[in-house]
Design a binder for these strands. Structure first.
Lengths: 115, 115
DNA sequence: TATTAATATACAGACATACGATATATCGAC
DNA sequence: GTCGATATATCGTATGTCTGTATATTAATA
């Protein structure tokens, strides 16, 4: 129980990588682009960050290598999220919701008093 | 414009400190307790983390020293959030909402396909 | 008054991530 | 057959936060 909670909070890079893979297995370059797309262009994961992060995530067992479909660009290496990885994403989403709840409440109280 | 965006994302400690001060000025120990309360006991900001963070935040101009009300425990030093700090909190909340949006969408798509 | 709890602060080391640079290599298009 | 985009990888460095530890002071209370 409570597995993987020890890697929270996730950095933005880790988060978007896992979220991208939650949808479907993909390869490094595709993850990069997907992260940028999902964030509306705000988050650009550079090559150095990405491949280092992928190795870290592999080592922690939250992602796995995934067989490359036949006829695919031979350079590609594909990755898939594991069950543990899915649990980490869900836990992180819970955490984000908690942060947001506190933050929004503070906003509304704070606005009442000062400006 | 776009002020303070360069300190995003905020760490949990920074976030809760700023959120606590968004509600009202407070002192170090009070912030500690408020963060723990807001997070339902999950986030405990240690002394080392707290005072280091307060200094960092002071240096960045997102919080300020605040006059201690008369008759208050003389040890206390109080802190208040600045306008810039408020802007940072709002920007961070927007960022969190964006993350959450991507994450939740991925969850629903991801569940449709695999388990 | 002795003791404990509350409060405040500083510092050093551990640790991790981000980033830029660099190096290869393959693919597709022209 | 050259060129630009795609694709993977590593290395070193910069940066920053967390944690633990140590130290003090004040307030409360026994």
């Amino acid at each position: 129980m409570e597995k993987g909670k020890d890697m929270l909070p996730l950095t933005e890079a880790f988060y978007y990588i896992l979220v991208a893979l939650y949808v479907e297995p993909s390869h490094g370059y595709g993850i990069m682009q997907e992260a940028e797309r999902m964030s509306g262009g705000r988050v650009k994961i550079g090559a150095g960050t990405l491949y280092t992060a992928l190795n870290t995530l592999l080592g922690r067992g939250v992602i796995d290598n995934y067989p490359v479909p036949e006829g695919t660009d031979s350079r590609r290496k594909m990755y898939a999220i594991t069950d543990e990885g899915r649990a980490v994403v869900r836990a992180e989403i819970s955490r984000l919701e908690e942060l947001l709840k506190s933050g929004k409440q503070a906003l509304s109280i704070g606005e009442e008093r000062g400006t």
